[in-house]
């Protein structure tokens, strides 16, 4: 992380901030306060403002991802196939809310507006592995199964 922070150029323009935040998140899974402060120094944009900008968007999370990063689709096609129950149940099972990480940093949850497999809904993914046409009764198994594999 330090290496990456050192690799940034001296000056950063305002319109480049989002892409640096994206790059940081791609690498480390979340946004650190120290990184926002670094960007603030290099771009001369107050850190409060950068935080305000970043928090506006879905993409950025401010807590490290859990060991298992769970993504769930909330698209309309998933919804009409009882996607809402899936989301609510998932929150209960992994004891996390959207953009949050569970207290034992085991699970983190991300709700995606549409994953793009509308014929396969509801779709859940755990660390990039997809589960399609998920039923509420299968959720526990999906989660615990990942646990065992790991």
């Amino acid at each position: 992380m330090e290496k990456f922070m050192e690799s940034l150029p001296e000056k950063i323009k305002k319109n480049e901030i989002l892409s640096y935040l994206q790059e940081f998140q791609d690498r480390f899974g979340y946004i650190e306060l120290s990184f926002i402060e670094l960007l603030s120094k290099k771009s001369e944009i107050p850190s409060g403002k950068i935080y305000g900008i970043a928090s506006f968007y879905n993409q950025f999370r401010f807590k490290p991802k859990g060991k298992f990063h769970v993504q769930v689709c909330e698209g309309s096609s998933c919804h009409v196939n009882s996607g809402l129950i899936i989301i609510e149940e998932l929150k209960k099972i992994i004891k996390t809310d959207e953009k949050e990480t569970s207290s034992d940093s085991k699970y983190s949850l991300e709700i995606i507006p549409c994953m793009g497999a509308c014929s396969q809904g509801p779709v859940v993914s755990v660390n990039g592995k997809f589960f399609t046409k998920v039923k509420p009764s299968e959720l526990k198994q999906i989660i615990s199964q990942q646990d065992e594999i790991a």
Binding site: M115, G116, A117, C118, S119, Q120, V123, S125, F130, T132
Partner: peptide
């Protein structure tokens, strides 16, 4: 190969 089909396997 596209996002939908990747999810479908």
């Amino acid at each position: 190969r596209n996002t939908g089909s990747i999810i479908a396997g």
